[in-house]
């Protein structure tokens, strides 16, 4: 049984990391990061079978790709707190000569990162390639990827979605951060995604929804179900209903904090809503 208290403590600490990272450099993307905090913690702490240390090839372990690279603050925090690099390095987020670039990259050799992302719509394709590679290597582990819902407006996704079903890439679990928000407003206002579940299904995917995408138990149960659906000839899609900015009341249910950092006063309020658990970096 997972230690739920520890996981929830970690979630709060990761929220603090996200807020402090973006505040320090007055830039970055807190909204989507906060919305996916529980998912990242669950994935890296409980769901993925990971090896000690970092090897680019990821043989014999589950691997993860972040397609919507702008939510790097949550990725970096969870990687650091999962042992990939020292948590103190979160202090260097977006600074000159840092390995923690604005968007994730392999270029600086940061452990845990297997592909650069930021220009949207490319993660599912990359994950498919890695999934093929696993099968060729007789490696029964899984490939996970997370993409944004607004990101699905990029056409390359649908090339990849068509391909994965057509080629029975069934060791792949794609999670969509379904928060309904993007930079210019709600996805409904910018470019409606329509019936997303129906679209994935029509393309031949096994689709499931996690209605409470910010609830640790719901995520764990849902993602375990998703894993049980692999190996059956279909790629698996999880529509993870999240709240952008989750855990900070004034950042929730709006696209305003997609790519904006809190000022000193706002940071103080946000941190007070998430008191220290495991210790700040």
């Amino acid at each position: 049984m997972p230690d739920m208290q520890h996981l929830n403590d970690l979630v709060i600490q990761v929220r603090r990391d996200i807020l402090r990272q973006v505040h320090k450099v007055n830039s970055g993307h807190p909204g989507g990061s906060l919305g996916c905090t529980e998912f990242f913690v669950a994935l890296f702490q409980e769901l993925m079978e990971r090896k000690e240390g970092f090897n680019m090839d990821g043989k014999g372990e589950d691997i993860f790709f972040l397609s919507n690279g702008h939510i790097s603050p949550v990725f970096y925090s969870v990687l650091a707190r999962s042992g990939y690099f020292p948590v103190e390095e979160l202090n260097t987020f977006r600074l000159l000569n840092s390995r923690l670039q604005g968007h994730p990259t392999t270029h600086e050799g940061l452990p845990g990162i297997r592909i650069a992302s930021g220009s949207l719509g490319q993660g599912i394709s990359v994950a498919i390639g890695a999934a093929h590679s696993k099968k060729l290597n007789n490696d029964s582990h899984h490939v996970y990827t997370l993409c944004g819902d607004g990101e699905l407006q990029e056409g390359q996704n649908w090339e990849a979605i068509m391909y994965a079903a057509g080629n029975k890439v069934d060791n792949l679990i794609v999670t969509v951060d379904y928060n309904g928000q993007q930079i210019d407003g709600s996805t409904d206002n910018v470019l409606p995604l329509g019936n997303l579940k129906g679209k994935f299904e029509a393309f031949g995917w096994d689709v499931m929804e996690i209605e409470q995408g910010n609830n640790m138990e719901a995520i764990m149960n849902g993602m375990k179900t998703a894993k049980s659906k692999t190996g059956k000839g279909k790629p698996v899609c999880v529509l993870l209903h999240t709240v952008m900015g989750n855990g900070v009341d004034f950042m929730m249910h709006t696209h305003d904090w997609h790519g904006k950092a809190p000022n000193d006063e706002q940071l103080e309020i946000a941190l007070s809503q998430n008191p220290v658990t495991l210790g700040d970096y």
Binding site: K59, F65, I128, K134, L136
Partner: peptide, 20 residues
């Protein structure tokens, strides 16, 4: 990969992870 070159480049990138 069919007539989908963008996807092809991404899949190719992913295939390298695992040594292909």
């Amino acid at each position: 990969v069919g007539i989908a070159e963008a996807n092809m480049m991404g899949i190719a990138a992913g295939l390298t992870i695992g040594g292909k």
